[in-house]
């Protein structure tokens, strides 16, 4: 019962904020609505019993990426550029013709049916033990798996992050006067 309530609330938060992100005309508001969507996704992770993932979602997306996004929005343009006027949006000509729309519709149909098939499996499995009585911690399991079975992936991703860090430092370095 409690899980269902949490699930419905987080799902609503996620979907409604995601729709607002798309339909708002102010890019700064879009970033704030994105905050709601990200928190909703963290709630969805919680209902699935993935506590580590939920906390990481909060830490990485809300604490890091969203602030960086807002910084980027603010540093790249003034307030006038941020508003997307509806008139210009409607003036964009429709792309494609009848043939592409037919193919696009068919592709969407196939993708949708595959998606529902996948979701049906998950839903069946979830309804078998819909109430998770023993709430197990995942952080020990994830930590152990990262340094035993998946140690290669772990190391490679750390090298990638180191490369990104050095790249960022190189870009941000002040240009020396010759």
């Amino acid at each position: 019962m409690f899980l269902q309530v949490v699930f419905i609330l987080s799902a609503l938060l996620t979907v409604v904020s995601a729709v607002m992100v798309v339909f708002t005309r102010h890019i700064m508001y879009a970033a704030v609505y994105l905050l709601g969507s990200l928190i909703g996704v963290a709630g969805l992770y919680l209902t699935l019993g993935a506590d580590t993932l939920a906390a990481t979602q909060l830490l990485v997306y809300v604490g890091g990426i969203l602030i960086i996004m807002i910084f980027a929005i603010m540093l790249t343009g003034g307030q006038d550029f941020m508003k997307n006027s509806r008139k210009s949006f409607l003036q964009v000509p429709f792309m494609g013709n009848v043939k592409t729309y037919v193919f696009g519709g068919l592709a969407a149909l196939v993708m949708g049916s595959i998606g529902t098939k996948l979701i049906m499996n998950v839903a069946d499995r979830f309804s078998e033990h819909s109430e998770m009585l023993s709430y197990q911690s995942t952080i020990e399991v994830i930590g152990e798996a990262l340094v035993t079975d998946h140690v290669l992936v772990f190391e490679i991703s750390s090298v990638l992050l180191l490369g990104a860090l050095i790249g960022a430092a190189t870009i941000a370095r002040p240009i020396k006067k010759q």
């Binding site: 506590d51 580590t52 939920a54 906390a55 909060l58 809300v62 604490g63 890091g64 911690s137 952080i139």
Partner: peptide, 17 residues
């Protein structure tokens, strides 16, 4: 929580926002 410190650091970043 099992991830108490993680959670605390994550949620307190809303203050910065």
């Amino acid at each position: 929580l099992n991830v108490a410190l993680f959670y605390a650091v994550g949620i307190s970043s809303l203050v910065g926002l």
